[in-house]
Design a protein around this nucleic acid. Structure first.
Length: 762
DNA sequence: TCGAGAATTGTTTTT
DNA sequence: CAATTCTCGA
């Protein structure tokens, strides 16, 4: 039996309502996850609902994982059968079994943004589209919006008005055809195809309706039209649909989120019970009041009165700096002074655009603050990772042309663009896939010189296919690295970037190992019953699938106690759903936040979305909030002056205190030639492998493979495996290894780790 | 075929 | 400014 007494009255009310539609309007920090998990436990233990009939849907894997573990510990035995998953992974699971009913192959691959762009480029070429007028990005986002609204190519074409839309319609059609040819689905398709499957196959729909008798949806304010449709279909029989959301935290309109879904819930599902959770358990009074004051400037929202039982706490600090460098410096310095006993995980710095992270990162490095960067380039989008994944995909499913094309000449095999084109033409002429064409082309006589190279490539792949079944994914990755010469190519480069790439690949291997360990005992029963369903997929398939659906936030360790002593740097969007004791919101300037677009367009809706984002940021803070801005900042290589953000003005004086930010103490050095001590004036791009410890943890990590001396010194001439002879310019003690800078003349100046590069004194 | 250097873009936000 | 794409010479 569960103890439900640690819930407040409203929360209990929300929990006890189990039948019929229910809308829980959960203000920021009002304990909505707690309500959802308790509700599931209540359904199982008090209402004796079979866990098998319960579904909880979230947006991110991270939210799903958190829900999973809380449900498992709260509801105990049998709780594993509750379906807890994101929209996208739910759809993948459903489609893998049943997509054949609508004429697709169950072994489809999933295309990410990069893949989509590559594909669209090819379509632009095929359709002779002038890339000066149309951009892949725009066309893709038009297609994405169309899919969000469930508009297919035919309908889109019918409604197309004007030249631009007509051409977009052409691209849309060609794009869908290409996806189909490659046996691929993009992110939007996962949802669209699932809805289409349900519409086309009453039998499948009936199966899932019976299975999901109790449905819960988290972050409901972010659902778009397809997602709404999906939910509506699934709940269409039993009608036990409970959605949780906060219209004030709807920040994904640009991704198709339809705020009307939450505002009109009672109309869509008549008789819905509405419960408001308005007690905030997270923030102190001044912070919460500041948030309330900002958000009340929005119109068209459901009125709420968030309150807290906590004291007023500190006022919101507002600091204006001269420029962006001083701002970053001031913020990080402040953190370094405030952080006691290295409890860095209390802190988060939030910003509007990813581009703002660079300055902050640099300052963390110079102050020696350990940090964790969330967002930016997704781990799984890194080149080396995509290369390896493309090999794995090709081994698993040779139908994905994009993957095959990606790796055909990686590492360099002397197969260039002209040969690739010939293969493409050959493939198209014969109505076969690209890989199939590679297999046949050597004997066709179409390609002369490259024939042998292509044959070697396919031999390699066939070889991998032969051994893959009796092998773990991790081992297969190892074989690929070795047999293709990928590893060797990186070793030859030997510089810091190559080292970072190796570390990323190691991390991928680790991921594969833990995946296989975790998935040996997955049995949610999903693979049984119902004729016509495809049975369980091999490990490699499932691994690729898992990997294609992870977002960057998912990797973040959550809970201040669990986060490993690092300051968190991330966008405001990524911060949704998280909380920190001490939050810094930087770049609070008109034109940056609210963004230039929103200000220039004059569209009140856009401005309101920005304001909601601001609200989300403020309400992340538990104890202290600092909002900063800079008078000037470099944008696109030129200096830009800004007024302070209008959102700051919306916070009444009684909740805030304003300061003038001091510039860096050594700022005079800025103009002198020598950098001030402890401050690198390096313009070199800052790179760090996603999973590698941040620079400062390097410093604290036990020294692994560093040798105590090098047999060369600054000024010596050394020989490198690939670059030949060069002169040593600098040797820096990087504490994990020596960082050696060498001038290779014609090959340029390279920075490398001594232990890795194996330089020889000449 | 491929690399280096030049030209040319561009900034929200992401499952 | 910096990242990506383009162009040209070998």
């Amino acid at each position: 039996m569960n103890d439900f007494n640690n819930l407040n009255d409203r929360q209990k009310e929300a929990m006890f309502c189990t039948e019929g539609p229910e809308l829980i309007l959960a203000g920021a920090g009002s304990g909505k996850t707690r309500v959802l998990t308790h509700r599931i436990a209540y359904l199982i233990s008090e209402k004796h609902v079979d866990p098998w009939h319960i579904m909880a849907i979230t947006f991110t894997n991270k939210a799903a994982e958190e829900m999973r573990s809380r449900v498992d510990s709260l509801a105990g035995q049998g709780a594993e059968a509750v379906w807890v998953a994101t929209f996208h992974s739910s759809c993948v699971r459903i489609l893998r079994r049943f997509i054949s009913r609508i004429g697709y192959d169950g072994h489809f691959t999933i295309y990410d943004a990069d893949d989509q762009k590559t594909l669209m480029k090819k379509i632009f070429r095929d359709l002779n589209i002038d890339t000066r007028i149309f951009r892949e990005r725009n066309v893709l986002s038009a297609i994405s919006s169309a899919k969000d609204e469930m508009t297919g190519p035919d309908e889109y074409e019918k409604n197309a008005a004007g030249y631009a839309e007509e051409r977009t319609a052409e691209c849309y059609r060609a794009y869908q055809n290409a996806l189909r040819q490659n046996n691929a689905l993009d992110f939007d398709d996962l949802l669209v195809k699932t809805v289409q499957l349900f519409q086309a196959s009453p039998e499948v729909l009936e199966y899932y309706r019976e299975r999901f008798r109790y449905i819960m949806v988290d972050e409901y304010q972010d659902t778009n039209t397809v997602q709404f449709k999906l939910i509506e279909l699934l709940a269409g029989k039993y009608g036990n649909l409970c959605v949780v959301g906060d219209d004030d935290q709807s920040i994904y309109k640009f991704r198709g989120a339809n705020i009307r879904n939450i505002l009109n819930f009672e109309k869509s599902f008549p008789g819905a019970k509405v419960v408001k959770l308005e007690q905030n358990y997270r923030s102190t009074g001044n912070i919460l009041d500041a948030a309330n004051e900002v958000i009340r400037n929005n119109r068209g929202r459901k009125e709420k009165h968030l309150w807290t039982a906590k004291g007023k706490g500190e006022r919101v600090r507002i600091i204006r700096y001269e420029n962006a460098v001083d701002e970053a410096d001031g913020v990080i310095k402040d953190i370094s002074e405030k952080a006691k006993s290295e409890n860095f995980s209390r802190f988060a710095v939030l910003y509007r655009t990813n581009a703002q992270s660079r300055l902050l990162e640099e300052k963390c490095v110079s102050y020696g603050i350990p940090y964790q960067l969330v967002g930016g380039v997704n781990f799984y989008q890194r080149k080396e990772i995509k290369d390896i994944l493309a090999y794995l995909k090709t081994v698993a499913n040779g139908k994905d042309d994009l993957s095959v094309m990606r790796i055909l000449n990686v590492p360099k095999r002397g197969i260039g663009q002209t040969t690739m084109n010939k293969i493409s033409v050959f493939a198209e002429a014969n109505g076969i896939g690209f890989y199939e064409a590679c297999l046949r082309i050597p004997s066709s006589g179409v390609v002369s010189s490259a024939s042998e190279k292509i044959r070697q490539f396919t031999e390699l792949i066939e070889n991998f296919r032969g051994k893959s079944s009796g092998m773990t994914v991790a081992a297969l990755i190892g074989e690929i690295l070795k047999d293709t010469g990928y590893l060797e190519e990186m070793k030859e480069e030997g510089d810091i970037e190559a080292e970072a790439r190796m570390e990323n690949i190691d991390e991928l291997t680790n991921k594969a190992v833990s995946f296989e360990k975790d998935s040996t005992d997955i049995s949610d029963g999903e693979d049984e019953t119902l004729p016509g369903g495809t049975s369980g997929a091999p490990v490699l398939d499932r691994f690729l699938e898992e990997v294609s659906l992870v977002a960057d936030v998912d990797r973040m360790e959550d809970g201040e106690e669990n986060r490993t002593g690092k300051v968190t740097l991330m966008t405001l969007h990524a911060a949704k759903g998280l909380e920190f004791s001490d939050v810094y919101m930087v770049g609070m300037e008109d034109g940056l936040f609210p963004g230039g677009q929103a200000v220039a367009s004059g569209d009140p809706d856009e401005l309101e979305e920005e304001r909601r984002l601001c609200y989300v940021g403020i309400t992340r803070a538990k104890e202290r909030l600092t909002m900063t801005n800079a008078r000037t900042r470099m944008v696109n290589g030129e200096m830009r002056w800004s007024e302070e953000s209008r959102f700051l003005k919306e916070i009444p004086d009684e909740y805030k205190e304003e300061h003038a930010g001091r510039g860096r103490e050594n700022s005079a050095f800025r103009f002198s030639k020598s950098p001030s001590p402890g401050e690198r004036e390096s313009t070199e791009p800052f790179r760090r492998p996603a999973f590698a410890p941040s620079p400062i943890s390097f410093a604290k990590a036990p020294q692994v493979k560093k040798s105590d001396h090098l047999d060369y010194a600054v000024g010596d001439t050394v020989r490198h495996f690939k670059f030949g002879e060069g002169k040593v310019l600098e040797i820096a003690d990087g504490s994990r290894d020596f960082e050696v800078t060498v001038d290779f003349g014609a090959h340029g100046v390279k920075k490398m780790f001594a232990g890795f590069a194996k330089l020889q004194k000449v």
